[in-house]
Amino acid sequence: MKQHIAVQIDDLTVAYDYKPVLWDIDLEIPEGVLMAIVGPNGAGKSTLIKAVLGILKPIAGSVSIYGKSYDKQRSLVAYVPQKGSVDWDFPTTALDVVMMGTYGSLGWIKRPRQKQKKAALEALEKVGMLPFKNRQISQLSGGQQQRVFLARALVQDASIYFMDEPFQGVDATTEIAIINILKELRKAGKTVVVVHHDLQTVPEYFDWVTFLNVKKIATGPVKDIFNDDNLTKTYGINYKVSIQE
């Protein structure tokens, strides 16, 4: 059986002020995987996602989503940025933030209507945040804010989801709620790519993993490549995780 390639990254190099943070990355992300991107701080994990989504301009290389450029495939892709990337004191409600996920399908000028509102409410329901729909976003806990972000991505009804550290600073309940939703997405045939920090949970949460440290170290199924050898190559020191049985 030949698996479709959801995201194809060729020779991607990204630099901040001429200092490369990603060197010549070649990466294929097969359709329907739940992939963790792991690597030390400054390895370029977030940068990789941002370059794929066109938020950062690479100095070399190309990215294609199902064989076409990102600009043509926008509607297939949803993105959950790091929670800290926005100002949570912004005057708006949880529902309104989720509605923002529908803006892409609306295009310029057109306003969200009943249909978009309904979709947003459904997404809030899925992440268990419906009771908080009218709450101002600064009045939400860190875990609740992360769920609102997840709902905003769900409402886009995309094929590929990119998430930048969705488990950062959330409580255990939220972490389980989020991973369950991600697993549901995979079950529905979606591709999910997650920048992840906690190596201990990689085998439990993900079926695919990419080791990244400025260069790509390895990519493949967790059961084949999540081992001390790759961890040491990625993190530099003699790294050993006790993988739970």
């Binding site: 941002k50 989504l53 066109g54 938020i55 600009d71 926008r74 892709v77 993105y79 940025p81 990337s85 926005v86 100002d87 912004f90 708006t92 933030v97 923002m100 803006y103 892409g104 609306l106 295009g107 310029w108 000028i109 057109k110 306003r111 969200p112 905003r152």
Partner: peptide
């Protein structure tokens, strides 16, 4: 009136605005 949605989105979350094509 025309660009309220776009202004709000890009003020709150520049990254999302960029990925959605605004």
């Amino acid at each position: 009136t025309a660009f309220f949605k776009e202004l709000k989105l890009s003020t709150f979350d520049k990254g999302l605005a960029a990925t959605l094509g605004f």
